[in-house]
Design a protein around this nucleic acid. Structure first.
Lengths: 189, 189
DNA sequence: TAGTTCATGTGACAATTGTCACAAACTATC
DNA sequence: GATAGTTTGTGACAATTGTCACATGAACTA
């Protein structure tokens, strides 16, 4: 994908980029390819990038006593990153590709600097943060108010593709139940 | 509190307001008093305000089968609002004052309009969103990775004042355990 | 002071869920 | 297609937690 294609693509995919001048966008964006298994973020490390998924899938997880516990999954046309590293802190999560992927790579440090000076860029990052906060709020609500079984049913309803592309082990940890409990939920109705 | 006092106060309390011109601030801010029990937000309703607590305490909760389940508590020098209503959607939570309170009231609709045109205001709302996202991430991490007992211990450590100002019933729902379980945690160590 | 209400503690029991162990099914690779 | 490795299903059991019922004690009201 060349620069012009990139601009056309990201503007189509992200309507709130429309107002950002092309010359600015090219300062903080590029397209990369990465194979399955690549760790885009590693726990404890600082990163000054985040990503938009053109093609592929990823998971975010923490390690708890050697076990992975998934925070989220991301697929095509979703943005992927860590609010901690966006703030310059070390990452508290690991983000790993579940499939070979084509990604738009944002340089978050450049983006933040631009946002401080450029209203269109500021509105862009504002929008992204807002979407992230809404997602976190939804997750929190699910965990506090809804049983494991209901969370499973909601996931089947809202994101059935997850079950085609992510292992049940990862999904169980995402739902906050053990692998065995998820297996029983699936087989009992 | 008059206009000048308000400006001095909020600029001292919120460093990221420094760059916002006073004339702009007065467009979206005022100071109000409200008694204990006031519902600043009600589930299902739209609101175009959010608040900064000068003095007082508040809780946010959902209703689940008649029971309140607390999302968060807020005290002096904290900002309080709903990301849903900020986005123009109906509130999914109720926010209620636990004590008589003095509040800075922001008009979020005015603030959003200003942010679209004014870089300093945009940076302000950006900063607020970022803090909110970090808080949600912390809560999510606690719920997914840490046992009820550890969550209790972390709360004692990080916010002991909560136990002076909030009922154990509310704290139990905040921690995601039953009132009885919290009682046992407290008496066993 | 008596009565009422509300917050909290506690015991008994049931239900849910996790853990462990192992079997079955599926994948990938040679 | 044989083998190794991974993923998923399942049974037995233990541990945790929730629910229900009731007791206690503090706070508030009349």
């Amino acid at each position: 994908m060349n620069s012009n294609d990139l601009i056309d693509f990201v503007k189509a995919a992200m309507p709130y980029l429309e107002e950002v001048p092309t010359v600015q966008i090219l300062k903080f964006m590029s397209v990369i390819q990465k194979p399955k298994g690549t760790k885009l973020f590693s726990e404890g490390k600082r990163h000054s990038n985040f990503y938009f998924i053109i093609k592929g899938a990823a998971k975010s997880y923490y390690l708890k006593e050697g076990k992975e516990i998934c925070l989220w999954f991301a697929f095509e046309n979703e943005t992927l990153g860590s609010i901690m590293t966006y703030n310059g802190m070390p990452s508290n999560e690991t983000i790993e590709l579940l499939e070979d992927a084509e990604l738009v790579c944002y340089q978050s440090d450049v983006l933040r600097k631009l946002a401080k000076e450029n209203l269109a860029v500021s509105n862009l990052t504002h929008k992204m943060l807002e979407e992230h906060a809404l997602f976190l709020e939804y997750r929190l609500h699910q965990l506090l108010f809804i049983s494991g079984k209901e969370r499973y049913e909601n996931l089947v309803e809202s994101a059935p593709e997850v079950f085609q592309r992510v292992s049940l082990t990862d999904i169980a940890s995402y739902l906050g139940v053990s692998r065995e409990t998820l297996s029983r939920i699936r087989n009992q109705g």
